[in-house]
Design a protein around this nucleic acid. Structure first.
Ligand SMILES: [Zn+2]
Ligand SMILES: [Zn+2]
Ligand SMILES: [Zn+2]
Ligand SMILES: [Zn+2]
Lengths: 131, 131
DNA sequence: ATAACAAACGTTATATTATAACAAATTAAG
DNA sequence: CTTAATTTGTTATAATATAACGTTTGTTAT
C-alpha cells in the first residue's frame, strides 16, 4: 500500500533495455535512433527517460563523454558514489567497483568543512587491450 | 634558443584573463559575449583558446557543468589530477587541493590492471553558506 | 633575410546536445 | 469515480561544440 516500488514506464523500459544491451556508453541521439522503431520519436522522450533512470540509479552519465551507461553496481547507492575507468584509445568505459575507494571518497572531507553528498570520479588511461 | 616556454597568444590571453577574473566557472558562450568587445567574434575562437589553456593546465573544465575555471593549484601537474567541490544550491565551485587525496588517486589501481594517467573528481554537496 | 614549417587566426556553416512550452493520455490513490 | 501526479506526444528552440577552408603570424634553420 504505502508505495509500489519504482515500476518503469514504457519509454523508460525501452531506453533502459537499449542501454543495458550496449557494450559501452550510448549517446542520447544514438539511443533515439535505436528506439525510433519502437515509437519514440523525439529527443525529449529519450531525455526524460534518461533523467528518470539516472534518478533511480539504473544508469549513469559519463560526464566527459555525454553518454549513458547501465549501472553494474547494484544501483550505486542511488548514484551517489560513482567511479569509472575510461580508455583514451578505444573509449572503453567500465564502472569501478571498489569498496575501499568508495569508502575513502564517501568519507572524504577537505579543510573547507563542506560535507559531500555525492561524487563522480573518472579515470583515464589505456585499457589492457590498448596498452 | 632551444625553445621559448609557452607564450600565450592574443586570444588565449584574452580568454584566460576573463576566466581568471571570474568568481566562478564560466560557460563558453558567456566568455564569448564577454570578449566580443575585444575582437573575438566567433565561438571557435573561444573554444580554440579554451582547448589550449586546458592543455597547458591554466584552466580546467568542470564536466558536469560544461564550464571553465582557472587553475588554483600550480597547474595541477598539467591537469592530470583534478578535484572539485560543487555546491548544488549556489553552484559555487572550488578546486580541491589535498595532497593525500591526489596521492591516493594518482596511485589508485583497481583489479583490472589498468594504470591510470589522469583523473577528474567532482564532489557535490552544500557549501558552508548554503547548508 | 628568407624559405619552410607550425601554430594561431578569422569566418561561415553545421553538428551535437539539451530544454521550453503546452496539451493529451495514463496511472495511482483516496 | 475523481482527483492528483506522472508520463506521453509534439513542435520549436536553446545551448554547446566542431568541420572546413584559406590567411596570417611566429619560429627555426639555412
Ligand atoms: Zn553504478
Ligand atoms: Zn582501449
Ligand atoms: Zn588545477
Ligand atoms: Zn552554496
Amino acid at each position: 500500500m504505502t508505495q509500489k516500488q519504482e515500476q518503469l514506464s514504457k519509454n523508460q523500459q525501452i531506453v533502459l533495455s537499449i542501454i543495458e544491451k550496449a557494450k559501452g556508453p550510448l549517446k542520447a541521439y544514438s539511443i533515439l535512433y535505436n528506439v525510433q522503431k519502437r515509437g519514440i520519436k523525439a529527443p525529449l522522450q529519450v531525455y526524460r527517460a534518461l533523467e528518470k533512470l539516472i534518478e533511480i540509479g539504473k544508469i549513469h552519465k559519463i560526464e566527459s563523454k555525454n553518454a549513458f551507461i547501465a549501472c553494474k553496481n547494484s544501483y550505486c547507492e542511488i548514484s551517489k558514489a560513482t567511479a569509472f575507468s575510461i580508455c583514451n584509445n578505444c573509449e572503453h568505459v567500465k564502472e569501478i567497483k571498489n569498496s575501499k575507494l568508495s569508502k575513502y571518497l564517501t568519507n572524504f572531507e577537505d579543510n573547507s568543512g563542506m560535507k559531500y553528498k555525492k561524487y563522480n570520479l573518472e579515470f583515464f588511461g589505456l585499457c589492457n587491450k590498448c596498452k
